[in-house]
Amino acid sequence: MTRAHIPGIIAMANIVVASNILVQFLFGNWLTWGAFTYPLAFLVTDLMNRLYGPGPARQVVFAGFVVGVFCSLVGTQIQGEFGPLVTFRIALGSGLAFLTAQLLDVAVFDRMRSGAWWRAPLASTLIGSSLDTALFFTIAFSGALSFLEPENDVSWAGEMLPLLGSGPVVPLWVSLAVADWMVKLALALIALIPFRLIVQRFRENAALT
């Protein structure tokens, strides 16, 4: 790690901390405010990958993972209305989803880095964020995995309701996952703008030195 990598590490740490705080606040019926900050982690990873390569990108991912683990440990000690703010299943799902999805993002980006400028960040983010959503919500809320934390009652997440209020009847946690996934897809497209601008600015500055 060099001094040039520190901004990426700081950015990732801030995103993880902010997302862990904002996930406590609802946005509508299916989302939390954290759903809008967390996808920025993929932007940071992709920028590090483009500017410095997969090695530094993985270092930033591991730094974010450590910060996330710390946030989860703090959350387990804070009591909310229905118990700890962070349960074992949520902590497990969050950690595994983040690490697996981000490392997959790095690998996909690296394989596609020689193509058109937008292909690698878009494809890696779409694939990584889709895996992130699937892993987190399944581990944290699926009734099939209740054996992971028997004392944690997540039956509320299994309530059968129309998908996003108007689709086929599915468990509530599926609607939460789909809404989260849709936000990630939208932000993956929007993030191409700052990705392009930051990469161009970096290269212009490098050419002047």
Rank of each mutant, 00 (worst) to 15 (best):
R113N: 15
I127Q: 10
V174W: 03
S129P: 11
E159D: 12
P84L: 15
R119C: 06
L104D: 00
D132N: 15
F147V: 12
P121D: 02
S155M: 14
V106E: 02
F88L: 13
T133L: 14
L172Q: 12
S175C: 04
A177Y: 01
Q77T: 15
G80Y: 07
D132Q: 09
G158N: 06
E159F: 08
D105C: 13
V154K: 05
T138E: 02
A107L: 15
P168H: 03
R89W: 09
P171S: 00
A101Q: 05
W173P: 02
L73K: 01
L103Q: 06
L122E: 12
L176N: 09
T133Q: 13
S124Y: 06
E151T: 15
P162T: 06
F109S: 02
A107G: 15
V154C: 04
V106T: 01
F137D: 08
E81C: 14
L92R: 05
P171E: 01
S114Q: 07
L148M: 12
N152I: 10
Q79E: 08
Q102M: 15
I139G: 06
I90V: 14
P168C: 04
V74C: 08
G167A: 08
S175W: 02
M112T: 08
T133H: 08
R89K: 12
L99G: 09
A177C: 02
F141Y: 10
F98A: 10
S130I: 11
W118Q: 06
F137E: 11
A123W: 12
D153G: 00
S114V: 02
A107P: 10
V106S: 02
L131F: 07
L164H: 03
E81S: 14
V74E: 05
T87W: 06
F109R: 02
L126S: 12
G143R: 00
A134Q: 01
V174F: 09
R89M: 14
L148Q: 03
L122A: 11
S155Q: 12
R119Y: 10
P171D: 03
L73R: 00
L92W: 09
L131I: 07
F147P: 09
S146R: 13
S130E: 11
E159P: 05
W156K: 15
S166L: 14
E149L: 04
F136K: 00
T125S: 12
I78W: 15
M160R: 14
L163P: 02
G128D: 05
